[in-house]
Simulated assay, not measured.
Amino acid sequence: MDLDAYVLERAGEWDRMEELARRRRLSAEEADELVVLYHRATTHLSVIRSRVPDPVVIADLSRQLLAGRAAINRGRRFSWQSIGHFLTDAFPAELYRARHWWLSLAVLLTVLTAGLVWYVADNPPVAALFLSPDQIEGLEEDFVSYYSEYRASNFAARVWTNNALLTAQCIASGVLVVPVVYLLGANLLNVGVTGGVLAGAGSLDTFLGYLAPHGLLELTCVFVGAGVGLRIGWGWIAPGPERTRREVLVARTRSGMIVAVGLVPVLLVAGVLEAYVTPAPVPPTWRVAAGAGVWGLFLLYALVQGRAADRRAAGHGVRRLSRAANR
């Protein structure tokens, strides 16, 4: 192996790693770049040691690697600026990048659920496969009382915890694909059978009036979690020609972690809607309008703010590549 040629070809990456390691603050993209460069440099050092163990090159590269490792491992101080960056850039950008997955799921599952509601309503014996006669008879009363059975603050916390767990399960199990399909199928069946029984009894307005105020936002969060999870799984199955399967999986898993954290406060809002707005003693149209308004704000945040954040991130990437090419 020609050591001089090998070093000359890779010295730019080592210098870039050292430059990033010296900075006091790194953006998310720069932090990712530092980690990638560090792992590449460790491979380069291993190759040099095994083939052409030049002590000067090994010592210099080892020094740069130590600086890179120290920068990766150093603790980060709490900063309101980092929270602001997460809310205005990192989270909405990841929502936007995964939009095709969760929007497609939302449309597909909404159509399937509507079809199941219609089928159960039109075929009453189907409901008997899942519910007892007593459960079917008292379903409307149980459905309405469910939202006011517990103290509102406790109910909001309970709903928030359950929905956050379900969404996290969809994201975490996405690489296996099948668990996400099962979780979505179980949720679809529950909503479809309940809606079908109520629709068959002439109480479809009750079903929609109590589900829509919180369900629009809550189910969208579930769709987002499931879509991001399936996106991770698809990255493992079909990574594409430009990156390795491992690189795609790492990148999309990181994206999934950002979405999982970002959905926590959104699901809290959905829990508050379910505990305070859904059972509120006001006309159903008011409750639905309130839920639809919050849901619309989330869609604007994910698609409009997300698009702007994604473009800013792309612009930073282009400038970074330009600087690297001009060094």
Rank of each mutant, 00 (worst) to 15 (best):
S145N: 11
A59I: 03
A313S: 11
A313K: 09
R74Q: 14
V248M: 11
D54R: 10
R51N: 10
N162M: 05
S148K: 02
M257T: 04
V52L: 06
Q169R: 04
E140D: 13
L321C: 01
E242S: 13
L176H: 07
R311S: 03
S173A: 15
N163W: 00
A325D: 11
M257Q: 04
R51H: 11
A309Q: 00
V261H: 02
E274S: 02
L8V: 13
L37M: 15
G225E: 00
R23S: 11
A314C: 02
A292F: 13
A11Y: 09
L45K: 01
G229L: 05
H214P: 07
C170H: 05
G215L: 09
W80N: 09
D134M: 03
R23G: 12
A238I: 15
R51S: 12
P133K: 09
T161S: 09
G256K: 00
G235Y: 03
S27T: 15
G215W: 07
A98Y: 10
A164N: 02
P55V: 01
G192S: 08
R76F: 11
P53Y: 07
V56Q: 12
L131C: 06
G215Q: 10
V111S: 14
P265V: 07
A164R: 00
E30V: 01
L34P: 12
L116H: 00
G225M: 02
W234I: 06
V178D: 02
L109I: 13
V57S: 11
A106D: 00
R10E: 07
Y6V: 07
T244P: 04
S322C: 08
Y6T: 10
L129G: 06
H100D: 13
R312F: 04
S148G: 13
I83Q: 14
L219T: 08
D2N: 11
W295Q: 08
V294T: 10
C221E: 07
T42P: 03
A127G: 00
L131Q: 10
I72K: 05
L273M: 05
G233P: 00
A31Q: 09
A212T: 12
N187Q: 03
L183D: 01
W102I: 09
N190C: 05
N73V: 13
L198N: 07
W234N: 03
L300V: 14
G293M: 03
A324I: 14
L34H: 01
E33K: 02
L109E: 02
W286T: 14
W101Y: 10
A98C: 04
Y147T: 01
G296R: 03
L216R: 06
A270R: 03
L189K: 07
Y96K: 08
M257D: 06
N190F: 15
S255P: 06
D134C: 03
E29T: 12
L95W: 02
S203W: 10
F223H: 12
A5P: 01
D310K: 12
D54I: 13
P239Y: 09
Y210A: 06
G235I: 02
A93D: 06
D142Q: 09
G12R: 10
W295S: 11
S255D: 08
S153A: 14
G229W: 00
L66A: 15
C170Y: 01
Y276W: 14
I48T: 06
M257H: 04
L61D: 07
R151A: 15
R77W: 08
P53R: 05
R311E: 05
E9A: 08
A127P: 06
W80E: 04
T220P: 05
